[in-house]
């Protein structure tokens, strides 16, 4: 992977206005996604990962405001575009597979027509006849052609998810953001769809941003992992490295709260405490009240960045190399 990255996010900060005051949902986040790369963004609910995903497409609700930062897609700052120019980027360049795909299809229109709607909005994206393209997409996601003219309520959960993926692929986007793409599905369907999505992505050399709370999903699909806590990325690195030797105590806690598929039996650790109140974030390292290794310095000052190769984490007390593994 060489040259400029496909997507470069720098210092992105998102605030929400609430009755109780300003809430910082995303706090100075920076990362890049290369062409063909899959970045997994993982964190507990409320950590700001969905806000981050929506901010990239500028689809945040009105109560939210992007305070600062840049979202560069091949050098174009999406945050500086006019509303009209931005619309040309949506779906055409960056498409989205939605959280709770169950409701992402409009119940009163045929599924095929909803995909055609996206194609007709971006006529330059695909030169084919839209109806022909829909059939091609249905083949790609293993859906039967006879369901093209059916309504969403006639689809099963898995079929809807496939249709949503087909819709996301419609305009051949450079990047697909998948926000909790399979959360509402049962594990078996979830696994199959993730695998197929991974295959399609590699085949088409597309970039992908997976957003999930589920470490197992992220482990399965990503090349690079970013762990988010209280609006910040606290650990970042190659998936293999992060899963093998996590630096941040939060990453370790997340990992040990999921069963290992291949590994030996061990008691699942639960992460004690609750996600911090975004209105009243803990001082110093935001994770310190829940951290088993917290010391006095963690309560007072923001943690430094610890690097190990391309992997990095923000922590005062990273484990020694021999202490884990």
């Amino acid at each position: 992977m060489s040259g400029a990255p496909l997507l470069a996010v720098t210092d992105l900060t998102v605030d929400y206005h609430t009755r109780a005051g300003e809430v910082r949902a995303v706090d100075g986040v920076s990362f890049t996604v290369e062409t063909g790369q899959a970045l997994g963004l993982v964190g507990e609910s409320g950590c700001g990962k969905s806000s981050l995903a929506l901010a990239l497409l500028r689809l945040l609700p009105e109560s939210a405001q992007i305070r600062q930062g840049q979202v560069l897609l091949e050098g174009v700052d999406l945050l500086a575009l006019s509303a009209n120019d931005m619309r040309a980027y949506r779906w055409n360049r960056i498409a989205m597979v939605f959280q709770s795909a169950m409701n992402a299809l409009d119940p009163v229109y045929r599924v095929g027509d909803q995909i055609i709607e996206a194609l007709e909005q971006h006529p330059s994206a695909v030169s084919q006849d839209p109806a022909e393209r829909v059939r091609e997409l249905y083949d790609l996601v293993n859906l039967n052609h006879n369901s093209i003219d059916r309504y969403p309520h006639e689809y099963s959960g898995g079929m809807k998810q496939r249709a949503i993926i087909a819709m996301a692929l419609a305009c051949r986007p450079d990047l697909i953001i998948a926000d909790e793409p399979t959360t509402a599905l049962d594990v078996i369907v979830q696994d199959r769809i993730l695998r197929e999505l991974g295959n399609i992505r590699r085949e088409l050399n597309m970039s992908m941003l997976y957003v999930s709370h589920d470490m197992a999903v992220i482990a399965e699909v990503s090349d690079v992992v970013a762990v988010m806590y209280a609006g910040k990325i606290v650990e970042y690195g190659d998936a293999a490295a992060v899963f093998k030797r996590p630096i941040h105590p939060y990453t370790r806690a997340l990992m040990s709260s999921f069963p290992s598929v291949t590994g030996e039996k061990h008691d699942l650790a639960t992460l004690s405490g609750e996600p911090p109140n975004p209105l009243d974030l803990p001082s110093g390292c935001h994770f310190h009240p829940r951290c088993p290794f917290a010391t006095d310095v963690c309560k007072e000052q923001a943690p430094p960045t610890v690097r190990r190769g391309t992997q990095w984490a923000d922590c005062w007390n990273p484990p020694g190399d021999e202490a884990d593994g």
Partner: peptide, 8 residues
């Protein structure tokens, strides 16, 4: 949200 994301 999906309709907006499609660029409509």
């Amino acid at each position: 949200l999906a309709a907006r994301a499609k660029g409509l």
